[in-house]
């Protein structure tokens, strides 16, 4: 017996076929994204290893800027992985937004609530 998920969806799976010429373009994109991800990782590790967070036990004033730089670079990497490697950029627009928008709203909310609450709990429990 044929499973319906196999034969009904065949059209969608087969719509993804491409020829060698198109394949070359795809591989070129993959190569470019690989180079970008590697470069960002190298930059991150260099900053992590050589820019000191603490000097003489005191946190440097520039550290919050470095922290945001790390977060920004991470989001760039994440965007390339999701849109290019996972091909979400090639999916149906409605599908893309249905996945991303609820997730982003929820996670930004959760992060904000937990970080603000964490600082508040710390002050309440340990003072300062």
């Amino acid at each position: 017996m044929l499973r319906d998920d196999l034969y009904k969806d065949e059209a969608y799976a087969k719509a993804a076929y491409h020829d060698e010429e198109h394949g070359q373009a795809v591989r070129k994109t993959i190569f470019r994204v690989t180079m970008l991800l590697t470069a960002i990782t190298i930059i991150e590790v260099m900053i992590g290893a050589f820019v000191k967070q603490y000097v003489g036990g005191v946190q440097e004033g520039y550290w919050s800027a470095v922290k945001w730089l790390f977060i920004g670079l991470t989001l760039v990497k994440a965007a390339y992985i999701i849109l290019k490697f996972m091909h979400l950029g090639d999916e149906n627009r409605d599908f893309r937004y249905m996945l991303l928008i609820p997730y982003l709203i929820f996670i930004v909310y959760l992060a904000a609530v937990l970080l603000i609450e964490g600082a508040s709990v710390g002050r309440t429990l340990f003072g300062s």
Partner: peptide
């Protein structure tokens, strides 16, 4: 995401570096 947010919670609540 929740695990990493929990990490952030502890990191922001602790007073020692």
């Amino acid at each position: 995401g929740a695990l990493l947010c929990a990490y952030g919670f502890f990191r922001h609540s602790t007073q020692s570096p």
